[in-house]
Structure formats: C-alpha cells, structure tokens
Computed example of a mutant assay.
Amino acid sequence: MKKIGITGQNGFVGLHLYNTLGLSPDEFERIDFNKNFFNDETQLDHFVAQCDVIVHLAAMNRHESEQVIYNTNIKLTSSLIKALERTGSKAHILISSSTQEERDNLYGKSKKEAREALINWAEINGGKVTGLIIPNVFGAFGKPFYNSFIATFCHQLTHGDIPKIATDGEVKLIYVQELVERIIHEIREEKSNYYLNIEATSVQKVSEVLGLLEDYHAKYYQNGEIPVLSSSFEINLFNTFRSYIDYKTHYPVKFTQHVDPRGAFVEVIRLGIGGQCSFSTTVPGITRGNHFHTRKIERFAVIKGKALIQLRKIDSDEVFNFELDGNEPAYVDMPIWYTHNIKNIGDEELYTIFWINEPFDPKDPDTYFVEVNK
C-alpha cells in the first residue's frame, strides 16, 4: 500500500485527488496535510517522513501582485525541499506545473523554477520527481474568479449574474477527473519524468463554452430539462455547471400538474439525452440509496406518498434534507460526489420514479456506498 500526501489537499485539484484515492483503500493510504504545516517544521517533517509519494499541488495562482505569486510559490517548494532533506526522504514527488512555464510572467517562472529545484533535490538525494505540465483545468467545485473561467461563468449563471467574455479565443482544457486519473497513473508507474506534458482532452473557444452553459441554464436550471450532451466534454461541463447550483434553495422542484376530470398528468423529465428510467415502491420506514456517483446524472421524482431525500457531499458534514409529498409531485437531482438516499416517512407506500443518464453496468457501476448520516 502506497502512503500518499497531497500539499494543497483542500484545493480544487487536491480535493478531487484526495477523494478519488479514497475509493481505493486497499491500494492507497492518504496522509492528511494541512497548509499550516508549511509554518511548522516539526509538523511538515512528520508529514514528509510518512509519505511514499507526495503530490505537490500547493501554489498561488492569482493575486494582484505577480511578485507575491512568485515569492509564495518559490517559498512553498523551498520549504518542502528542506523537509525532504531533513528527513532523508526518497519519496516520489509529483509537482503540478503549468503550460505557462514558457510565458513571460512571474507565475510561469515560479512554476518552472519550483520544478527545477525539485529535480535538483532528486538528482542529489536519489529521489524521484515527475513534473506535470498541466493545461487549463475545469470541473465541479472549482473556485469562481480563481480556478478557471468556466468556474466563474457557472457561478454567475446560477447566481443571477451575466457572464462577460474578456478575450475570446481557443483554450486547451482538461476535466479535473481526467487529470486525477492521469496523476494516479503516474503514481502507479513509480518513474521519474522531469517534464511530463499532460495533453488537453478538449480545445474550446471561450464563446462556445459560454454558449453551452447558457443553454444548460435555460433548459436545465430554469426548466428542468436534461439537454443534449453529445460528447464526454459536454457531460463533464454539464456536471460542472450542476455543482454550482445552490441546492438549499433550488430543490425540491415542483412539477406542473395538468388536472382534468380523469385525474392528473405530470411530465417527470424532458430529455435530450436518453438514459434509464425506473420505478419503485417503498414501504414506510425504509431507506434506499446511501451511495454516490462521480459522473452519473440522476433524478428522484416522488409521485405518491411522503419522502425524505438527503444529500451530503462526501467530504462535508452538512446534510441537505428535502421533504417531498406526492400530493405536490416534485423532484430532486443528485449532484456528483454527493451521497444520497430516500426514505419513506409517510404511512403509505412511497412511489418514486428514478431516471439516470446511463444504464447500470456491473463492470463499471460508478456507485460507491457511503452513509449520508455518519
């Protein structure tokens, strides 16, 4: 079992990597990191001494002063190298760098010099270093106005603002989970690669990305329709968009009922995408679910009885509770990386319709069982 630590563990990429490593507990042991370790040699040394692999993601990306960015990034890597030297570590260090290494700015310069400093440590001390040259990363839970223009656009569209394009042009992109899978591949390889160029998985114009996000906002956010998603990039972009919705205020969404003397008609889901639709009855007091998905899009629609739907982001203690009543049919959509369940809290059978965008495949289920209530 490899013991892996991540500097920048609670950052955008770090948190996705940390959570994904946790899906393979028989292969990887996660050594927790706190940013305050950089200010305490004893704690930093203790962290470093435990690790077989350190993924060095801690860095400053944006600040009003480029010099502050440069100084911060050099200092963080210097502190890590000193700890490696004090502990005699021969760990495999994977450092995140950027395609901006070749640009004439202090951020790019700081990333290049940090990578080269770790290479120098490895050559002198017998360690291993992999320098990850990474294109623009996007994905769920990125920090708006900091991590990517996509994070900013998603936040603005789901919070009543109008996105504006500063400069339109083609951008090389990689989805955060694709990057995480590549990092884990390199961890398993156990080889040095001082300059490993991580290929972008998509090249998109900024205006085209905004057009897709505006379509998701109009169809999905405002009307509940799952839009056409014609590529893996669009599925990843759609899941990214969904992660910025304020679930506390947006759900549950009540259906429009068309009532006449015969009864009522309710459209449960309008699709541009296909997928699998299923139906369940649940007796009083029973709970279904307590699992999460990393890529699937799923809807729970209550049409009869009373239900409690609960959601919890797997690295959070906060539980979202939604009570639904079949007298006013409603639905809740399940965001990625949120464990979720549904419980019959009424006195009669609960009728629920479930829709998911891909049929269940036992060889690749993308279903991980974690209790919502710890």
Rank of each mutant, 00 (worst) to 15 (best):
Met1Glu: 08
Lys2Tyr: 11
Thr7Pro: 09
Gln9Met: 13
Leu17Phe: 07
Gly22Trp: 06
Leu23Phe: 10
Pro25Asp: 01
Asp26Thr: 11
Phe28Glu: 00
Glu29Asp: 12
Arg30Asn: 06
Asn36Arg: 14
Asn39Glu: 14
Gln43Arg: 15
Gln43Phe: 11
Phe47Trp: 05
Val48Arg: 10
Val48Trp: 05
His56Leu: 05
Ser65Cys: 08
Thr72Asn: 15
Ile74Lys: 03
Leu76Val: 05
Ser78Trp: 08
Ser79Thr: 08
Leu80Gln: 07
Ile81His: 11
Ala91Cys: 13
Arg103Lys: 13
Lys111His: 02
Asn120Val: 11
Trp121Asn: 12
Ala122Ser: 14
Asn125Leu: 00
Val137Pro: 01
Thr152Tyr: 06
Thr152Asp: 05
His155Gly: 12
Leu157Gly: 07
Leu157Phe: 09
Gly160Asp: 11
Asp161Phe: 04
Pro163Ser: 06
Thr167Val: 15
Val171Ile: 15
Tyr175Val: 04
Tyr175Asn: 04
Glu181Leu: 02
Ile184Arg: 03
Asn193Met: 01
Tyr194Thr: 12
Tyr195Asp: 15
Val206Thr: 15
Val209Phe: 03
Leu210Met: 07
Leu213Ser: 01
Tyr216Arg: 03
Ala218Gly: 13
Asn223Ile: 02
Phe233Cys: 07
Leu237Tyr: 10
Leu237Ser: 09
Thr240Met: 06
Phe241His: 12
Ser243Ala: 12
Ile245Cys: 11
Tyr247Cys: 09
Lys248Pro: 02
Tyr251Phe: 15
Phe255Ile: 00
Val259Glu: 11
Ala264Pro: 01
Gly274Tyr: 09
Gln276Met: 14
Ser278Asp: 12
Phe279Trp: 06
Thr282Met: 00
Val283Asn: 03
Pro284Val: 03
Pro284Glu: 00
Thr294Ser: 05
Lys304Tyr: 04
Lys304Gly: 03
Ala307Pro: 01
Ile309Ala: 09
Lys313Trp: 03
Asp315Gln: 04
Asp317Phe: 12
Asp317Met: 09
Phe322Asn: 03
Asp325Ile: 10
Asp325Tyr: 10
Gly326Pro: 04
Glu328Cys: 01
Trp337Lys: 11
Trp337Ser: 10
Asn344Glu: 02
Asn344Tyr: 03
Thr352Asp: 07
Ile356Thr: 15
Asp364His: 15
Asp364Tyr: 14
